[in-house]
Write a protein that binds this DNA or RNA. Sequence first.
DNA 1: TTCATAGTTCGACCGTAGCCGAAGCATTGC
DNA 2: GCAATGCTTCGGCTACGGTCGAACTATGAA
Lengths: 227, 227
Amino acid sequence: MKEGPDISHIAALIGDPARASILTALMDGRALTASELAEEAGVGLSTASGHLSKLAEAELIAPRKSGRHKYFNLADAEVAGVLEALMGLAARKGATRVRTGPRDAQMQVARVCYNHLAGRMGVQMYRSLIGRGLLAEEGEDVALTGDGREFVTGFGIDVTALETGRARMCRTCLDWSERRNHLAGSLGRAMLTRMEDQGWMRRDAGSRAVLVTQKGKAAFATAFPET
Amino acid sequence: MKEGPDISHIAALIGDPARASILTALMDGRALTASELAEEAGVGLSTASGHLSKLAEAELIAPRKSGRHKYFNLADAEVAGVLEALMGLAARKGATRVRTGPRDAQMQVARVCYNHLAGRMGVQMYRSLIGRGLLAEEGEDVALTGDGREFVTGFGIDVTALETGRARMCRTCLDWSERRNHLAGSLGRAMLTRMEDQGWMRRDAGSRAVLVTQKGKAAFATAFPET
DNA sequence: TTCATAGTTCGACCGTAGCCGAAGCATTGC
DNA sequence: GCAATGCTTCGGCTACGGTCGAACTATGAA
């Protein structure tokens, strides 16, 4: 008398510590190789290879061969969303396995989620765009308004290119630390890239934290004022 | 070098088939006893007791003693939301463990999620309320508008009582079958209860399906027209 | 009090699944 | 061609955790 999809299989996949590390490592949207993920998870290459097969088989991650390397990505933003949601549950009993350090504080301020900006700054950007009518919420997702289109173009982003792309341009993603939406989708990704290009922020290699430059702090506050 | 909350522990808890059955059984919001849950999961009472301790320890479920019975509920709507999200992932590769039958079709149409209405009808209700400006989305959550307050009161619900309650009145919950939001929170619960009281629908004992009466079909379509 | 029902704890059993190292493919570089 | 690198497969070990039944506790009913 069980109804609905079988969640135990997929949850069990996420439930192994090594596999959870792998998935967490992929949450910033970068593609990583099997060796890098093995290192990240702290297991041997053969073990990691087994884990990766299982995750790929369940379509939680998407493998891509490139030469003699094999790169892995999270399958899509929905998977990333489920992982963030699980982090939300885990976070509220302080079940962080993290060695606390300077990076962790920065993680709360700005970090990469899948491939867009998350953390306090990600949420601030989102709320600022909504508050000024540049982004409008429609049902479960969001869209650029006319004003928003203009703003984003002025920000240095080719909106037309995004619109013709295959990926959804605007998506929301629930932030595990802030418990509020931030902007995902191809626009979210483009915004982060643009801010990196302008020297406002840069990703911390080997973690999901995003380091904000002095110049970036000021420019960000001007571009995305709290409303 | 792991950052962020430790999702593996919590995912592993959900990942055991017996525990997943228990959690799934609790998704309709009813409180069930240890024996009932053992039956549901198909394990012995002693085994179930162990599982229940673990789930309670992780605050996924909330135990309540009542006489010589012990009742269990999901801890809150966020837990229910994570479970629905996992179902969404599982559903897309057809990983249903369900014996297909007439009930399952009904589950797609209308079912109980935690304690509110989900499935096609749940989504229709939500979209109808949004479309007519009775419910407004604000950031990640939703609120009743002035018109909405009037409408809901006319529907036979004491809004003031809900507002003074401890639980959040309006919440959204992502539907695993429809992939769209439906209304959760104490208002979502009250709406379902009210519709049951009026004889529009009733819960199928022993499953999460909601059976809609002939009268209910018509009344629902009138009350929540597609916009 | 005595009995019955509900749930917990304990001990023992057993299977699954994670782990590694070694050997085997595949791809690139020399 | 041969060597080096990246990954997969295989075999065998181990341990963790799910399972049950039995003994124990607690609550309520007769």
